[in-house]
Computed example of a mutant assay.
Amino acid sequence: MNLFQWPENGAVSLVCKRKWAETSTSVSFTLAPEAGEPLCFDFIPGQFITLGIEIDGKMEYRAYSLSSTPNQTELQLTIKRVVDGKVSNYIVDRLQEGQIVSVLKPAGEFHLQQPHGKQIALLSAGCGITPVMSMAKTLLANEDDDTDIHFIHAATQVDQVIYHQELITMAKEHDRFHVSIMLEDASGSDYLEGRLTQAALKQYCPDIAERSAFLCGPVGFMAAMKENLEALGMDMNVFYQESFTPAESTQPDVSLESMSNNNVSIFVPDFGAQVETQVGSVLIDALEEAKVPVIAACRSGICGSCKCRVTKGEYTRTSTTTLTEDEIELGFVLACSCQAQSDLEISLN
């Protein structure tokens, strides 16, 4: 079967084929081309795609991890309701089967091709389960693979465990797949109640320090798990986590004392747009104010959807994720992680 061809830049239109409830606060759905022959989607397990959905007359973009496996004819995602989650809550409540959405190609450095050993721990909480579920299913589907997998997941209560029955089935069918679930409220289940402390991790998986680890979940959860794994003696060279925090800047700051005033101009010749902003302002905010068509999905320098080129002017940046060395040399930046330090001229093409 032929592969789906992702464009190098820009979005494609895919249709929501199926949608169903996973828990009372989360839904899963699949995406595929609207018409034509079935095509397989290629990506690395653990990666995300960026969805563009029109809400109240405005296109909103967000990055979501894939939970399906590569080389299938539909992409699967699972989205959980979150407080003030404009796009997530729209998807849970209003996305319909047959609805068209915009999609940017898979991206992200949190994936299964990172070096790892024959024993791995997959740790997740809440909807952070999606990328590690993709990893687990991919490894188990490969009959030539003998990786031993210990899947450790944290949730609030048993009816909020995403993919609960699927995890149980996977453990029954594969001797090399082990599942441990920790619940804040374990009522109605046989699972342990509490939080994933060092002691709990060691109890679940006595050899966890000898494993490679892939971690995804809320920021606080990931910080605690990383600290726990370090304390248990894990080799952090084979520890990976999904990060939505931009890397620290490697570019020296431009001295603000050399600036004649605190205002700078952002000019986008392609659209004849110009806007005034303050020195140090984030470029994406200025571009949105100028009403030019720029996509901002993660807003943290991870997904690469807001890539553009600075053709004139001085700037600093906090992330170059997804940019190649050649692109960096040519002045490409991620607008959400670029700070204007002088008048800038921007190319979006």
Rank of each mutant, 00 (worst) to 15 (best):
D148Q: 10
I168S: 07
E166A: 13
K58D: 13
L66N: 05
I346H: 03
G117R: 14
E22T: 06
T324A: 07
I346Y: 04
S28M: 09
V294I: 15
T197G: 04
K105S: 04
E37G: 00
G188K: 00
G217H: 04
P218W: 03
K226T: 13
Q157Y: 09
P38W: 03
F110L: 08
L95H: 11
F48W: 05
F151C: 07
A340E: 00
C306E: 03
W20Q: 10
F110V: 11
A273I: 03
L283H: 05
T169H: 15
S68L: 02
Q251G: 00
A171R: 12
L122D: 10
T316A: 11
G188P: 00
T197V: 05
A340H: 01
F239W: 03
T316Q: 13
S260P: 14
F239A: 01
G272E: 02
A273F: 03
T197H: 04
L348E: 07
Y61I: 09
R81A: 09
A209H: 14
I91P: 00
S347A: 12
A171F: 06
K19C: 09
L104S: 02
P131T: 03
Q119L: 10
M259S: 14
N349L: 13
A296S: 15
S67N: 14
N71G: 00
P131Y: 03
F244Q: 01
N89R: 08
G280C: 06
L66A: 05
V158I: 12
V83I: 13
D145Y: 10
A335S: 15
M1N: 12
H174K: 08
I266L: 01
A136K: 10
A297N: 03
I129K: 00
A63G: 10
V101K: 12
I79W: 07
Q99F: 00
H164P: 00
V292L: 01
T138D: 12
Y61N: 13
